[in-house]
Design a protein around this nucleic acid. Structure first.
Length: 623
RNA sequence: GGGGCGUUCGUCUAGCGGCCCAGGACACCGCCCUCUCAAGGCGGAGAUCAGGGGUUCGAAUCCCCUACGCCCUACCA
């Protein structure tokens, strides 16, 4: 019967968990899950000088975030506790002693300086440094060890490598690999501080913890012969070995800080989905079939076999990860998306806002690549619209007048069509599309304008859906706000009123009854403003009129009647004036009045927004 | 210097002697869709399979050599 699969992830807590390390953990974990085996986490904290506070927690958090669970290890314990090597020193010390007793290891008293000298000398010699007893300790040590003082704090224990023959490993990924023993050096197994080196500790623990397969990064391949010799000297049955390809930066060098984000925590903070990162990482060195890339975890587990692991190192391709993250985001249920976006929204959300976010989420879903874009991409849904440049309102090929006209029309039409409070996007769409037909604007221009007015941006999710989610109140307010913004722009202001003085001219002279009635509706302040404008703008009235004529559509019952009037008053065309005037009725005077009222903006004392809603304009018309 | 591993489009990869003058994906380019941005659809460009020798009727696939890259060469893991 085949031995049970027991694999392990053995990180050393020397810093933030690395993408490369975590990928190793992932492969081990997948292998365990695939084979119904156990996945063990063991902390290799044998280097006291490199310990980093919080590193163990960070490693464990990284695993938990990716949903990689462990059957034995820190926090969960297990039959081979403890799982921190610093708490198992006795085990290693005993084994080291046993090896010394057996003659497989010896005490070495060489100073670091001597060692360094030896090392340099051996460089050009073609042999491994102090191999086969390069220093004298091996030869004299065995005999001399007996007489040495116990606990000498400068001595280390070195393993005595065989001086001939080869050590061979049958790597599950790389096949047979062999090394000549004479080229191997006598490596240290127990340091002078009493801690084991990696080599002794892994072998001891992998054996004691009954590890069946050692899957680790390729950088460990060169030390495998040491481990094998250790197993043999200790009389242990070695496990299977599989050396995983490394993950490198774009320069093909071992991944390091200068390659950008390498710590798994950074990916979490940048809004990568753990399932996306996991899926992506597994593809770095493993493939299902060469064409299936995005796949559920269960599929990965079901098909995860060592024979499909690649041999060569892989560059970590951020672009592809980003793409895959987008894929996973799009696959999320809207509520789930909202839930995951929440931590990335830079404001506390109350219950209502959380619901609101739930409605926003589907809109931004397919244009979100990372969760950390959440704040940015939803900003205009919350609170007031931040200042935006009114110049962005008018789309290509439009000027402020076009924008003003279209905005006013949209405002009126939406206001009228959704009075009952039903503000779904279909309704808004049909309403705005009918309005669009009355304007000489392309759809792109009209909706582009409205988009800026509603969101403050040139780019957003589809307009009508966005408006629906924003809600009637916000939309209406923002449209009028946009109008106001435009009017506040000095240069635009002038243009927008170009036609008014001319109109005033005609009002004063014309005899058309409707126009007279209209002038009666003008309140004194407004009148004054118009006169002021007239003076200022006299020189340009001609072109202004032409401008308005362009926007004219003749249709009864149209709020844009005001524009028509303006447009229909070219000089010497009283007939036309009459024609328009004739079409006016009470309802349109309202529009006229609204329009004229905006003039008051010219005079700061008559802020439009301060007065809006206050005026009982109907009074002037007598109902 | 020594030892080891690796080498298929820019990147991740498929390929285990004929199905491959090499397939998929990301990125890139173009078109379509379209109210913007995305998403999506369609199409394009992109690899003399590191180079050279063999073996074979036939090689990206097997063997050898060379080159290049990377890893190890610490009382670090």
């Amino acid at each position: 019967m085949a031995t049970a699969v027991r694999v392990r992830y053995a990180p050393s807590p020397t810093g933030q968990p690395h993408i490369g390390n975590i990928r190793t953990a992932l492969f081990n974990w997948l292998f365990a899950r695939r084979n119904g085996g156990k996945f063990i986490v063991r902390i290799e904290d044998t280097d006291q000088t490199r310990l980093t506070p919080g590193a163990v927690e960070a490693i464990l958090d990284g695993l938990r975030w990716l949903n990689i669970d462990w059957d034995e290890g820190p926090e969960v314990g297990g039959p081979h506790s403890p799982y921190e090597q610093s708490r198992r020193l006795e085990v290693y010390r005993r084994m080291a002693e046993q090896l010394v007793d057996q003659g497989n290891a010896y005490y070495c008293y060489c100073s670091r300086e001597e060692l360094e000298r030896l090392r340099r000398a051996s460089r050009g010699a073609g042999a491994a440094p102090y191999s086969g007893g390069g220093c004298n300790c091996r030869r004299m040590g065995r005999a001399g060890a007996v007489g040495e003082p116990e606990g000498d704090d400068s001595r280390v224990v070195r393993f005595a490598m065989p001086e001939s023959g080869v050590t061979q490993v049958r790597d599950l990924i790389r096949g047979d690999v062999e090394w000549r023993n004479e080229l191997q050096e006598d490596f240290i197994i127990l340091k002078s501080d009493g801690f084991p080196t990696y080599h002794l500790a892994v072998v001891a623990d992998d054996h004691l913890m009954e590890i069946s397969h050692v899957m680790r990064a390729e950088e460990w391949l060169p030390s495998t012969p040491r481990h094998l010799q250790l197993y043999s000297a200790l009389g242990f049955q070695p496990p299977e070995f599989a050396h995983l390809p490394m993950i490198t930066g774009t320069d093909r060098a071992k991944l390091s800080k200068r390659h950008g984000a390498t710590a798994i925590g950074e990916y979490r903070e940048q809004g990568y989905l753990p399932e996306a990162l996991l899926n992506f990482m597994v593809l770095l060195g493993w493939s299902l079939d060469g064409s299936t890339e995005v796949m559920p975890l269960q599929t990965i587990i079901d098909h995860f076999t060592i024979d499909r692991i690649t041999k060569s190192a892989a560059i970590f391709d951020q672009d592809k990860l980003l793409w895959m993250n987008g894929v996973y985001i799009r696959e999320l249920d809207a509520n789930e998306l909202a839930r995951r976006m929440t931590p990335f929204i830079p404001r506390e959300l109350d219950g209502d806002e959380q619901d609101y976010l739930g409605r926003i989420a589907p809109l931004v879903q397919e244009r979100l690549k990372r969760l950390d874009e959440s704040g940015e991409v939803t900003a205009y849904f919350f609170g007031e619209l931040p200042d935006y440049d009114p110049a962005t309102l008018a789309q290509r090929g439009m000027d402020a007048i076009d924008a003003l006209i279209a905005l006013q029309l949209a405002l009126d039409v939406i206001n009228r069509d959704t009075k009952d409070g039903n503000f779904d996007h279909k309704r808004v769409e049909s309403s705005l599309k009918s309005a669009e037909q009355r304007l000489e604007l392309s759809r792109r221009q009209f909706f582009g304008l409205l988009r800026v007015a509603a969101t403050g941006r040139a780019v957003s999710p589809p307009l009508f859906e966005t408006m629906e989610v924003l809600g009637r109140k916000r939309v209406l307010f923002r449209l009028s706000q946009a109008i106001e913004l435009l009017l506040h722009q000095q240069s635009y202001l002038e243009k927008s009123y170009l036609a008014l003085p001319e109109m005033l001219n005609h009002l004063n002279r014309s005899t058309a009854p409707a126009i007279l009635a209209m002038s009666k509706c003008l309140r004194p302040e407004t009148d004054k403003a118009i006169l002021l404008m007239a003076e200022r703008l006299r020189a340009r009235t001609e072109s202004a009129i032409r401008k308005f004529v362009k926007h004219l559509t003749l249709e009864r019952g149209n709020v844009t009647e005001i524009q028509r009037i303006l447009e229909l008053i070219p000089k010497k065309d009283d007939a036309l004036i009459k024609e328009v005037a004739w079409r006016l009725d009470g309802g349109h005077y309202q529009a006229v009045l609204n329009w004229l009222e905006q003039l008051r903006l010219e005079d700061p004392e008559f802020r439009y927004s301060n007065r809006a809603g206050e005026n009982d304009t109907n009074r002037h018309f007598g109902g």
